[in-house]
């Protein structure tokens, strides 16, 4: 859900690549309705890339076709990628500028330096 297009000169800045150094997988109750609802709000190719970046892409197809609701196995894989895998330490990398954003204690740091901010307006 994060973009780096806040950086001056970066227009799209999405999806950010993930270089994880520490990952945790926690147990979260499976809620198929949540997964189906969330899927309508996200960019699936970006999730697919992110899940593979962190080495948890298993069970995820490159594209989603057909009725997801009926496919419990797929829903469980999506549940895992969306909710159970957490990058604790690592970095996000802007696909355009290569700018790196550290992730520490599970929190991405998207703050910019003064000279990276576009002050010329929208």
């Amino acid at each position: 859900m994060l973009t780096s297009n806040i950086i001056k000169g970066v227009t799209k800045g999405f999806p950010l690549a993930i270089n994880p150094t520490k990952i945790e997988v926690k147990e979260v109750d499976f809620n198929p309705a949540f997964v189906v609802k969330t899927l309508t709000k996200i960019d699936y190719p970006a999730l697919y890339q992110a899940a593979n970046d962190v080495g948890h892409g298993e069970g995820l197809p490159e594209n989603i076709e057909g009725d997801v609701k009926e496919n419990e196995e797929l829903l469980k894989s999506l549940h895992n990628a969306l909710l159970q895998v957490e990058v604790i330490e690592g970095e996000l990398v802007c696909p355009e500028s290569g700018r790196k954003f550290p992730i520490s204690n599970g929190i991405p740091n998207m703050l910019l330096l003064e000279n990276e901010i576009d002050n010329t307006g929208q």
Binding site: M1, L2, T3, S4, N5, I6, G13, F14, V28, K41, D43, L83, G106, I107, P108, N109, M110, L111, L112
Partner: peptide, 20 residues
């Protein structure tokens, strides 16, 4: 469970969360 992001206002999220 929340998804925290260190950023100014909603800067890093506003493009992807547009209308959502």
């Amino acid at each position: 469970s929340v998804e925290p992001v260190l950023c100014n206002l909603a800067d890093a999220l506003e493009h992807r969360l547009e209308g959502k």
